[in-house]
């Protein structure tokens, strides 16, 4: 049974737990990746993976990522909703990994809404 990696992961987990406990506090940004059948078929998993990579590089602990179901707008999938505290949620449409990286760097980190990709305000 190939189980040797679990110990390594525990070590990494302990280390990251130490660093995150220093930066505790509620999350101020919530990013929702819509993962219904339609979203997944359209590439939501790749979007989620790009988002995870950006997040790992960003060193921000106040950003929460959640997966949710279909919003009912299947033709514009993959959809991603960005909710920053004290501002209106923005739904992005037809996302792919590069668009996700751009939205993360510009909108989430710098607060510039990327209206080219936006579907609308919720």
């Amino acid at each position: 049974m190939a189980k040797l990696t679990i110990d390594d992961l525990k070590k990494i987990k302990e280390e990251t737990a130490k660093s995150t406990s220093l930066r505790e506090g509620g999350s101020t940004v919530k990013i929702t990746v819509h993962m219904g059948t339609c979203g997944i078929a359209a590439g939501a998993r790749e979007v989620m993976n790009a988002l995870m990579e950006e997040l790992a590089e960003s060193d921000r602990s106040d950003i929460r990522v959640v997966a949710s179901g279909c919003m009912g707008m299947c033709s514009s999938e993959p959809n991603v909703t960005v909710e920053i505290q004290d501002s209106e949620p923005i739904v992005y449409q037809k996302m792919e990994s590069n668009r996700m990286r751009q939205v993360f760097k510009r909108h989430v980190l710098l607060g510039e809404v990327q209206s080219d990709f936006a579907l609308g305000k919720m």
Partner: peptide, 11 residues
């Protein structure tokens, strides 16, 4: 934790 997830994916 995104760093953990990153390592988990790799492993």
């Amino acid at each position: 934790d995104p760093v953990l997830i990153f390592h988990l994916t790799q492993s």
